[in-house]
Simulated scan of single mutants.
Amino acid sequence: MYVNHEVFNDADRHAAALRGWEQRYDQIGAGVFQSAVKQVAVEGVQVFQEAANVRVVQRGALPAGYTTFGLALGGSAPFSFRGARLDQDAMVITAGAKEFMLHSPADMSLVGVAIDPGVLRMVADAAGIDVEDDLFYRDVIDIPRAAGMRVGRRLVETMERVLAQPALLGNAQAERRFAHDVAEGILDLITYHVPGQSNRLTHACQSEIVRRSHELVLASPEEPVSIFDLCSALRVSRRTIQNSFQSIAQTNPANYLRSVRLAQVRRLLLASRQSDVPVSEAAACWGFTHLGHFARDYKAQFGELPSQTARRL
């Protein structure tokens, strides 16, 4: 495991900070260079966010043995990667140790992911996603802007939770879950380039998928169930999971699963005294380890902070 967050006033030091990358940054824009790099790496997966205030050209070779992805979160102009335009409607997707040149605009923010193809394949197989190999040699693919921003923010939030509490990756199981969460985010975007399959499930079958998913959440209170977990346990594809929740509950599976866990926390708060079960303990009982995010989600769900929930005993 490798966890790091640094700020720089020199482009060469910034370039050298990205673990496992052979590259050089040349400052093109005028002004005092200011930048930051956040990165988390576990076996098979590296995630990083880099930001810089002036235009830079990045040159080097992509990490050998990995498939590399990149999402532009912001910048004063589009990026250019290996001769292809990269903005918030596109994603870098390329395999192998290719030489590259990336022109980064001023005020840029970029999320990068390097994944062992075996990890990506395992998660894709579990989700029932059949990805053609030629997709990974296109350099840049189009994606919906909203989807790209959503996944980009999710990757940053996942990384920042670890940066705030490195102990969250204190064992091999936690590292695997982190790797799977990252791979799932990337697969969310790849599926826009996977031919769709007709949905032949009956309403009853979709309802059963949602019911069993609900039961799986209740059976694993301290360890949140991911979409990957559902695909593995129910032996259905990610697309089937998504279609079933949309049809039955008119929401996406992640929101549904989080709502079920929030409901259990609220039930626990209402059934206990503050002195017996503090809010932090109630949240932890249902897998909410980041109290700030938990309080935000709780208020959005119930219209009040968890500390405001009346204790009836």
Rank of each mutant, 00 (worst) to 15 (best):
V42M: 12
V47E: 09
Q58D: 14
L62C: 01
R59K: 14
A52G: 15
G44Y: 06
V42H: 12
V32A: 12
E43V: 11
F69K: 06
F33N: 01
V37L: 15
V42D: 10
F79H: 11
R59M: 08
Q49D: 02
A36C: 01
G70I: 09
T67Y: 01
K38Q: 12
A36Y: 00
R59N: 10
F48T: 04
L71E: 00
S76G: 06
G60P: 06
Y66G: 02
A41P: 00
G74H: 05
Q49W: 04
G70W: 03
A77D: 11
F69Q: 03
A61I: 04
G60D: 08
A72E: 05
A61S: 14
Q46F: 02
V57F: 07
V54G: 09
G74L: 02
F33E: 04
E50G: 12
G65V: 06
K38I: 03
L71F: 00
L71I: 14
Q49A: 15
F79W: 12
A72F: 00
P78K: 08
A51G: 08
A52M: 15
G75T: 06
A52T: 10
Y66M: 14
A52F: 07
A61W: 01
Q49H: 09
G65N: 09
L73N: 08
G65M: 04
S35G: 15
A36R: 13
G70Y: 04
G70T: 02
G74R: 13
R55Y: 00
Q46C: 11
Q46G: 06
F48V: 09
V40A: 10
G70C: 09
A72L: 08
Q34V: 13
A52N: 11
V32C: 02
A61G: 01
A41N: 04
G70D: 06
A77T: 04
Q49V: 10
F33Y: 13
F48I: 11
P63G: 09
A36S: 14
V54F: 10
Q49L: 15
V32M: 06
R55S: 15
Y66C: 08
V45S: 02
V40E: 01
A52K: 07
A64G: 05
F33R: 05
A41V: 07
G74I: 05
A64E: 13
A77R: 07
T67G: 03
R55H: 02
F48Y: 14
N53S: 14
P63W: 01
F48G: 11
T68M: 11
E43A: 12
